[in-house]
Design a protein around this nucleic acid. Structure first.
Lengths: 342, 342
DNA sequence: TAAAAAAGTGCAAGCGCTTGCATTAATGCC
DNA sequence: GGCATTAATGCAAGCGCTTGCACTTTTTTA
């Protein structure tokens, strides 16, 4: 094995030796530095290609004190909303020359804290994250704030951390969905809400309530349920509502998956959708098109949120951290067969 | 701004100065090197914590010539199967002290080539990937092979690249699914297959054909269609089949999403599922439970494949590249309401 | 045509950490 | 009590690239 192959890695020094010039010239040539003559650049590039040289990003990062890496911390990788968001994140990052390293918290605050530590160690140039449901203390982001490493948050955000926030107008989502049911003639609308501690779900609830109020419809206390939106929660809610003497004639589900479960549970009870009951969910999944009846939904633009988050993040990386806050609209109302004109 | 804060980063030198010892001792102490006394270790760790020191992985990687990063190249981040796989990949990686950097090819070979270049530049310690549908030339992986950087492939793999291969037994999937329909009494079973160029789909087809043969059922040529499994392809297949004088009484769809579309298209034609026609798809999605009738499927264990891929990869990183090839079984047959006893 | 400006390269330090080897201090042995 | 071990620490080079500054050569300007 010749010494050149020992490490299997070609460096700028190899190129330099080959051409009898200095490594600094090689570096500058490869980076298209204006001070290097075209002739030299061409020679260098040719040899680089010849030898199969590929920039060592690790070394480059160290000396430039910039990694060109964006860290992503999200609750799950497996769920549709986040998968979409991640896809958007990765695309924009790639287009701007950034790599992205990922991590999932599984809704555990402890994991979230741990992951910020890892991201810090990796010296990411920026962070995009969606907080855990339980996160209220956000001190673990201080490391980044102190170093002016921008942190962009989307969906579940905290205004206690400076940096871009990308959210959808959850209030409007709740409002629009509810109003849609009202326009169809529903009079007794129920809402399965998410944990009150979460801004996202609180706002959706507010939108729901205001839509009722604006339309002079009463809000029955049993018709507004808060939960963790687990499968069991959804089933319990359905059981409770459907055993009421006065059943609801419309349901607004706070999440895509709870909507799906509610619809399925209701159907299992033999209740006719949408004739006896209209359903709409806040958050759309591909499923919604395929179930019978297809499920109306307010679309939450995960992909767009991901893109927007990174776009803003990169702006901050380049121009310094700012507090830009983007509320994505319009939220698309997808009217399908689960909501019906009474 | 004091000089210590200028960079905002605490280094081992800062700790060394604070304690009047050498940086090497600090480094060793932090790494729990046996040659360092407990007393020193404790002092060092205390000061490190005090100053808020966090290892600079970039510098560490450079000097150790090991990044502890695993690169992932997959077709999409947004699709359910890959999202699951990614989730498994990330978990195992994290548990073993690896970070993962991601990229998606969008089924473009050119992107795939580009991404291998990026991963090489990032000096990943290992690569896990699922090839593009169109990938036949795999020369772009040679860089890694030459450097003995292990490459683990899952689902869509190439045996031309050394390293672990994680696949499901696609033949068995096709076989089992078909047999299930046969056991229900289906006599005229059709199959919408994927591109023949793909091993995955070819094997599923083979399983389908063999199941028919084994059970002495004829294979009608119009009943075996190859396609790219797009939405349009699925609709076309349904139209063709349902206009036949002798309609099929069972359909095996080569993918989860085509199965969903087939079921939906068939229902739209007023055909009764599962009374007139049984459907099963190779690949399961959450949707399948929620559609009516719920869709039977052979489950493809994405999450497990992801985990297995990284597990094998890390084994290779530690012990050298080997060609371990894992075929995941048993594939789970999820019998739901779309397949019915005739 | 001499002086000034511009163009093109090279030198060498530095990014923060790791590690082989040398050095010193402490302990054990006969 | 002198010598060989062992334990604990420091030195300094090196990982591969970047970059401020110095230097040389060429071109421009008056």
């Amino acid at each position: 094995m010749s010494p050149k192959e020992k490490k299997g890695e070609i460096t700028i020094n190899d190129i330099a030796k080959e051409l009898n010039i200095s490594p600094s010239t090689v570096s500058r040539a490869l980076n298209d530095n204006a001070k290097i003559s075209e002739a030299t650049k061409n020679k260098v590039k040719a040899v680089a290609k010849d030898l199969g040289y590929e920039l060592n990003l690790v070394a480059s990062s160290l000396s430039k004190n910039k990694t060109n890496v964006i860290g992503v911390i999200i609750p799950h990788l497996g769920s549709q909303f986040f998968a979409k968001a991640l896809s958007g994140i990765q695309e924009v990052a790639r287009d701007n020359g950034y790599n992205v390293i990922i991590s999932q918290t599984n809704e555990s605050v402890q994991q979230e804290v741990e992951m910020t530590r890892v991201m810090n160690s990796a010296r990411v140039d920026g962070l995009v994250c969606c907080l855990t449901m339980e996160t209220d203390n956000v001190d673990h982001f201080n490391v980044f704030v102190k170093k002016s490493i921008p942190v962009a948050m989307f969906d579940r955000v905290s205004y206690a951390v400076p940096g871009p926030k990308i959210v959808v107008d959850n209030y409007e989502a709740g409002y629009v969905a509810t109003e849609h049911l009202i326009n169809l003639g529903c009079k007794r609308i129920a809402h399965l809400a998410g944990a009150v501690s979460s801004k996202v779900f609180e706002e959706r609830s507010e939108g729901f309530k205001d839509a009722l109020k604006k339309n002079s419809l009463p809000l029955l206390s049993q018709f507004l349920l808060s939960s963790d939106l687990t499968e069991q929660d959804a089933r319990d809610a359905v059981r409770l509502w459907m055993n009421l003497p006065q059943r609801p004639d419309g349901i607004v589900a706070a999440s895509a998956s709870s909507g799906l479960i509610i619809a399925s549970a209701v159907k299992a009870m033999g209740i006719k959708l949408p004739e006896e009951l209209s359903i709409i969910s806040l958050g759309n999944e591909r499923c919604n098109e395929f179930v019978t009846p297809s499920l109306s939904a307010v679309d939450m633009p995960g992909y767009e949120m991901g893109k927007a988050a990174v776009t803003q993040l990169i702006k901050c990386i380049n121009d310094g951290v700012t507090d830009s806050s983007i509320t994505l609209k319009p939220i698309q109302l997808l009217i399908r067969n689960s909501s019906f004109k009474h």
